[in-house]
């Protein structure tokens, strides 16, 4: 007897759906029948038993810039009652990677087996929750080999088997308790000896790496540019109404600047846990320079100031969270037509 067909819904972004590039990054989620874009080649590789019944696509800014977007996408994915959800491959594209990982994570939470594909440096790798993430190449020029890895992984995951790191799984598999063959003290001494012997890489706890950031292009016409003020200095309205964490922040917040020309000390203060906030609380402009920014706006030095400032507390923040904040901020600001930002850093 033939095994029952596995129904797959494939998630991709606006670019790979052929909707457009950055101009279409704000497009909302849409479901279409069957495989499209890279899904066509993926379907060929999957064979007859694994069938892409529908594709859901969404603009990268839309998908990564709002908390509700993932639920909207998931609702479309669930229309087909799939056995497996596949997202990507997203390569190193940050917004696309976040969207793929979140869609896969949300689908997994709803009991759907899911698989996202991206490069190991994609910030989405940290957002996959209980979903499986499989390795892809750096960029779309590696689409062919990335789809081969993805198709092989899909067959394994669809069969109910866990994907191993050797098969392309990214991130740590679930933590397991294992018994080391030698006690920690002996291993630590070995590492010290290795270091003294010139091995600077030996470690049992690899530290996060700072990635290379490609600088944004220069703004061409400041007088036409929307400028945003952004800070990790934890400046919030008096009383910290949204409970921003003062250390190890997991969130960022936005506060309106509409109709506000200056930040009064009795209405704003910093709750940052990593430095003395005495000076910030005397004059909040020492953290968010709204007074001068308004002045420059009035003089026409910039097109206009963005209607809100974005804020988090940069204090013991994990690199993974910081990367996520950066990607989310960029998507959020781009959607608001902001083209330059001053990020005050404490």
């Amino acid at each position: 007897m033939k095994a029952p067909m596995t129904k797959i819904v494939h998630y991709i972004n606006q670019f790979f759906a052929g909707i457009g590039g950055e101009d279409a990054a704000g497009s909302p989620p849409v479901r279409v029948e069957g495989a499209i874009g890279p899904g066509r080649r993926l379907q060929q590789l999957l064979g007859d038993d694994l069938h892409i019944v529908a594709t859901v696509h969404c603009g990268d800014d839309y998908a990564s810039g709002s908390a509700d977007a993932v639920q909207e996408i998931l609702a479309l994915v669930r229309q087909d009652d799939p056995d497996l959800v596949i997202a990507g491959p997203a390569f190193t594209s940050g917004r696309y990677g976040l969207a793929c990982a979140r869609v896969a994570a949300a689908a997994t939470e709803h009991g759907l087996t899911s698989l996202a594909a991206m490069h190991e440096d994609n910030p989405g790798v940290d957002e996959g929750g209980a979903a499986t993430i499989v390795r892809s190449g750096v960029a779309a020029r590696e689409m062919g080999s990335s789809l081969e890895t993805l198709a092989a992984a899909a067959a394994i995951v669809a069969g109910g088997e866990p994907l191993t790191n050797e098969q392309g799984r990214l991130g740590r598999p679930r933590r397991q308790v294992v018994r080391a063959d030698r006690p920690a003290a002996a291993r630590a001494v070995d590492l010290v000896l290795a270091r003294l012997g010139g091995d600077l890489e030996a470690t049992e706890v690899p530290l996060p790496r700072f990635e290379q950031v490609t600088p944004a292009a220069a703004v061409e016409d400041l007088a036409q540019t929307v400028l945003a003020l952004v800070t990790e200095g934890a400046l919030v309205p008096e009383g910290n109404p949204d409970r921003l964490e003062s250390a190890r922040a997991t969130r960022w917040l936005r506060y309106s600047l509409d109709g506000i020309d200056s930040l009064a000390p009795d209405q704003y203060g910093s709750i940052h846990g990593g430095f003395s906030t005495v000076w910030a609380n005397e004059d909040p402009h020492r953290i968010v320079p709204l007074d001068v920014a308004r002045e420059l706006e009035a003089e026409g030095a910039i097109g206009r100031l963005h209607g809100e400032y974005l804020v988090t507390a940069g204090n013991g923040t994990s690199v993974a969270n910081a990367r996520r904040f950066g990607v989310e901020w960029a998507a959020d600001l781009r959607r608001s037509e902001v083209r330059a930002a001053i990020l005050t850093s404490t």
């Binding site: 400041l222 540019t225 420059l296 030095a301 910039i302 330059a340 001053i342």
Partner: peptide
């Protein structure tokens, strides 16, 4: 503060 912001604007335009 104004000097800093003017310099920041020059920076984003460079």
């Amino acid at each position: 503060r104004r000097k800093l912001l003017e310099r920041a604007l020059e920076a984003v335009a460079t």
